[in-house]
Amino acid sequence: MDLVVNAVSHEVDSAPLTSLLEVLREELDITGPKAGCETGGCGACTVLIDGEPRRSCLTALCMAEGREVTTVEGLGTPEALSAVQQAFIHHYAAQCGFCTSGMIVASSAYVDRGGSPDTGAIQEALGGHYCRCTGYVKILDAVAAVARGDDADTMSTAASPTSSYVSIGGTGNGGGGAA
């Protein structure tokens, strides 16, 4: 069977009902899609099929035949990251990174179809994606920034809209301990 992934055609040997996730990761060694819950619950395995976000763990290989599969690897290159990838860096939207490729893939589909920067709309679009580390705060910031058309400087990080700093200065008055 032929499978087109990131605009490259692959001849694959897996059985037709093998999950697309398993084919991508195990046969083609394309590991951007993560094997999280593998039952459609977490969003980490999300890929685009003809531009629409789909759970690759719930998609049989035969359902992807003749269609364009795009993983996070196909959205940009290290030299030319996509706008969403740049915004995730600028807004520090990844910590451990396990949910990140699914988040980026789904966010790309959202902004490509003209999604608004409204927080509620982004939460609805990405509501099926779970993140354990970030509290979603900076992910929402990043997607809203792309939806607004903001530039993202990948060599700096964005100021936080939710945190303010109070410096009580000096040194050595902060409690603790052992020398």
């Binding site: 982004i122 939460q123 609805e124 990405l126 509501g127 099926g128 994606h129 779970y130 993140c131 509290g135 979603y136 705060v137 992910i139 929402l140 936080s160 939710t162 945190s163 303010s164 700093y165 109070v166 410096s167 009580i168 200065g169 000096g170 040194t171 050595g172 008055n173 902060g174 409690g175 603790g176 301990g177 052992a178 020398a179």
Partner: peptide, 19 residues
Amino acid sequence: GMEGLPAVENVLIENPSTG
């Protein structure tokens, strides 16, 4: 999940430690 999150506001107090 992402929906229904509370608003979060942080005040971060820089209070340097000794060691």
